[in-house]
Amino acid sequence: MTSYADIVQAHKRIADKIHQTPIIESSLLNNWLGSRVLFKAECLQRTGAFKVRGAINILSKLAEQDALPEQIVANSSGNHAQAVAYAASLFGVQAKIFSTEGVSAVKAQATQYYGAELALYPTRLAADEAVYQASLATGTLWIPPFNHPDIIAGQGTLLLDALEQTGDVDAIFAPCGGGGLLSGTVLTARERCPLAKVFGAEPLAANDAAESMRQNKIIKLAQPPLTLADGAATPSVGEHTFPLLKTLDGIVEVSESDIAYWTQWLQHLLKLHIEPTSAMSMQAVVNWLKSVPRGQTVLVLLSGGNIDHIKMKQVWSKDYLCQLPSL
């Protein structure tokens, strides 16, 4: 299992290869909610998302061991694809990405721009089977999007960076897809900021993590989910992430209307290009703030900012800015 020591090593390993993204806040939002909400703007990271941390960590570690593969393969709905493509280019390794035909056009174009070959399949299951078959070739490394100790360690560096900027906070919030970011986050939090609560947020329409927590076993979605938060549309968490997710203080299931609401408001207030997957964490923030005294300091990990015009049209199909945020 990944340890905090692994995250510290990953932090040293990738420090000169990533951006130190800023902490941003909105005085209006703070006033409306009666607490201070700090946002780690990882949407400004290289490739536009936190995923590059894990991908660079796994390849940097292999480079240290003089064990880089001849080819990398990966399966992804978008952000991990870009991260692997970018990391592979840093180390001069060929990469092939397996995804679905419904992948975001922005993420697909960026993946190819970084030099990776992109293979598209009708379903996530078909793409997953194809990447498995490709991984059997000699000299090929399969980098999964979340279910790997070195990926979890790399993602855990996001909170480590954030807490170096903010100091201790009362609660930490991040989105949950396969659980790589949240797993690294809860590991870092328990060591670096042990009094802080740590919560995840996932779409109600893709709530496999919450259902897995309720049943105390990994539950897989019966069919591909329809959600604005495409970065959290994974079919299930993994055997590496699930034990760590069980140490969270909770996972909040967020409706599609609330995902759209907070995407609009965060884009408006923070003046950042923020993915719905990132924005949905704010509903978990509001739910928690209703149960505690005013004056809290919370940290929200804005995991990415890659959103194409089709998704933007869906998000803005109804105007939510006439409804002010409140508790």
Rank of each mutant, 00 (worst) to 15 (best):
L62M: 07
I259T: 11
S77I: 05
T297G: 03
Y86W: 09
L266V: 03
Q20S: 14
I259H: 01
V106Y: 14
S77D: 05
V93R: 00
A137F: 01
F50E: 01
G305H: 03
P149R: 03
Y86R: 08
S99D: 03
S212P: 08
S89T: 00
G139K: 02
I151R: 08
Q323L: 15
I23W: 03
D208G: 11
A108R: 13
I172A: 07
S326Q: 15
F242R: 04
L204V: 11
D6F: 01
K107F: 08
V198C: 10
G179M: 04
L245W: 03
M280H: 05
W32T: 05
A127G: 12
T166K: 11
T111V: 06
T123W: 09
W288D: 01
F98Q: 05
F146N: 04
K318M: 09
P224F: 09
L125W: 08
T297Y: 06
G34K: 12
I24M: 06
V292S: 12
I152A: 02
L244F: 10
L158C: 14
S257K: 10
Q283L: 05
F146C: 06
A105C: 12
I219H: 09
G54F: 07
M280E: 12
M282C: 12
M280F: 10
S326T: 12
V103K: 09
E239A: 11
Q283S: 11
A85L: 08
I152W: 00
A63R: 00
A87Q: 02
G231H: 02
T263D: 12
D308F: 11
R190Q: 14
S35E: 11
L118K: 03
P175N: 08
L226Y: 14
I172T: 04
Q283E: 14
I172N: 06
A126V: 01
I251E: 03
D208R: 07
V37P: 01
L187M: 13
D150N: 14
H309T: 14
A110Y: 04
E253M: 07
H19P: 04
K96D: 11
S257E: 15
I218L: 13
V300H: 00
A108H: 09
Q112I: 10
Q65S: 13
S35P: 08
D161Y: 09
A206S: 15
L302M: 06
L327P: 07
T140N: 06
E211L: 10
G156K: 05
R214P: 06
P149G: 09
K61T: 10
S281F: 09
Q133A: 14
L269W: 01
A10W: 01
T157A: 00
S281H: 10
